[in-house]
Amino acid sequence: MPGWRGAEAMLEIGGLHKSFGGVHALAGVDLRVDEGEIVSVIGPNGAGKTSFFNVVTGLYPPDGGDIMFEGRSIVGLESSEITEAGIARTFQNVRLFLNMTVLENVMVAQHCRTRAGAFRAVLRTPFLRREEAEIETRAKETLAFFGTRLVGYRFDQPALSLSYANRRRLEIARAMATRPKLLLLDEPVAGMNPRETAELTGLIRKLREERGFTVVVIEHDMRVVRDVSDRVIVLDHGVKIAEGSYDDVSSNEAVIEAYLGGS
């Protein structure tokens, strides 16, 4: 997809290190994501993909290296500040607020984009009423992105009543509601059947084309990777071993070796 490349670097990572005990989850990763791209991160299990997301979103502090987001270093920021700066994510093992309703899950994610505090809440000022109405409308509009699956009577259902696929969708909606510029999706189609996978593949492209998000996807399903990615990055043992278009990467010797487990 030409036209997306060559824009300003949205995320620029240099020499990112993270180790847990003796395990080097990330051993010097360099990476660049441009505005408007869809980038896939692939690699065998334990390659450091999820650790990469966790470090970028501030769940763990990096041991070394730098993370620049829109020209500003975000190393050392709280994860809420990083979200506020414009990076949102989903989790590999879906982590919704299960006892909150579908709508509330999406409403609560707008926290950092809204302002009414305790005083306005207690006094029920017009500002608060307007903002609450706005939050609700925006939440409904975000959920409508997934067609009819999460709207209507679903709004008031607790998230725990949702099917697995709907939980994944709701998690993406929740991340969208933080109004990010960069969306990190951790295995968005894991556990979905082929039809649902195909549908979500289309939605990932729509995330960019309709909503203007830049997207980084961790994915194991190679068909999804092929269909959505502008660029593929392959991690193994915490190191980037290949980068390029899907066709380049899939014929790369090092990648094949990493996946087939050569020594």
């Binding site: 994860s79 809420s80 979200t83 949102a88 994510r89 933080t178």
Partner: peptide
């Protein structure tokens, strides 16, 4: 953890 990741200043 997730609340913080969703932008809430915990």
């Amino acid at each position: 953890t997730v609340a913080a990741a969703m932008g809430i200043n915990v």
